[in-house]
Design a protein around this nucleic acid. Sequence first.
DNA 1: CGCTTGCTTCGAGTGCACTCGAAGGTCATA
DNA 2: TATGACCTTCGAGTGCACTCGAAGCAAGCG
Lengths: 155, 155
Amino acid sequence: MTVMQSTTAAPIEQQSPAPADICSAPPRRHPRPEGQDRYTISEVVAFTGLTAHTLRWYERIGLMSHIDRSHTGQRRYTNRDLDWLDFVTKLRLTGMPVADMVRYAELVREGETTYPERRELLEQTRRDVVSRIAELHDTLSVLDRKISFYETGGN
Amino acid sequence: MTVMQSTTAAPIEQQSPAPADICSAPPRRHPRPEGQDRYTISEVVAFTGLTAHTLRWYERIGLMSHIDRSHTGQRRYTNRDLDWLDFVTKLRLTGMPVADMVRYAELVREGETTYPERRELLEQTRRDVVSRIAELHDTLSVLDRKISFYETGGN
DNA sequence: CGCTTGCTTCGAGTGCACTCGAAGGTCATA
DNA sequence: TATGACCTTCGAGTGCACTCGAAGCAAGCG
């Protein structure tokens, strides 16, 4: 195994079949260890619950900037990368399409000049999230009404 | 046009291209009129924003019980049907797969004996919705942090 | 030395929820 | 009589986000 310094490698733990529900969070199997800044792909798999295939795919489509490599060409993810992955995961569960996230990633890569555009994008996303939360609250109250109906044995 | 009594038929208004974002609400184009209980499919299209194709499909897969027909065999949706459609729409935006909604619809058709199972299903859904709301709040705070960063011109 | 982990590229497959079109039909209204 | 709204069945297509497998190769560990 090509495992980094101190980390105990994730046990085999087969890659999840992942029913691909866009709107729910990934399993997040392991906490991220402290005091480390270079993770192998299999470690990232363990942390995020994404598959190696997906991680490479993210990089390919530009959702992640080029990941650092070891001298032998293997990916070494940094904490920064993991933070980004966390962020992406959050965006993903707002229902934002991957293409939009890629757009945002591009803006980040373009540097400080894109601050206003990035802000605009995030504010739009924020509005979406707020309205989605409202919808879900709505749904919740419908559910509660139905549930209480069933609770009373259906009056 | 085969339009019901008083209702002014929905103007042509082409069927939406609908980018099919599972997790967001449909447009809901028109309010439902009062004092009516038989709607043509095109009216339901106007109320719900779903296409006629989709409405027939919902019926075919058992997501809706058989819709009442006019003497010529045309669908006449009732307010009850519209309520169900509203409910389905709400469930849909929780990310619940159609198959599960069909399951629930079947339980409803099976009658009162399925009350406990229905309740169980709704409570599970409720838990899902609650956790999704929590996730979205989480996302919101991440967004807010980023936005305020951009607001200050990125300190 | 072999096993494991990783790399690359390629392209095909999956699952979901629609979405569309065509063909051929019935009615009712202008 | 023509048009338009609706019906049926059928099957194919779409878009998204993965998801998988295969081929062929390079490193590192025990």
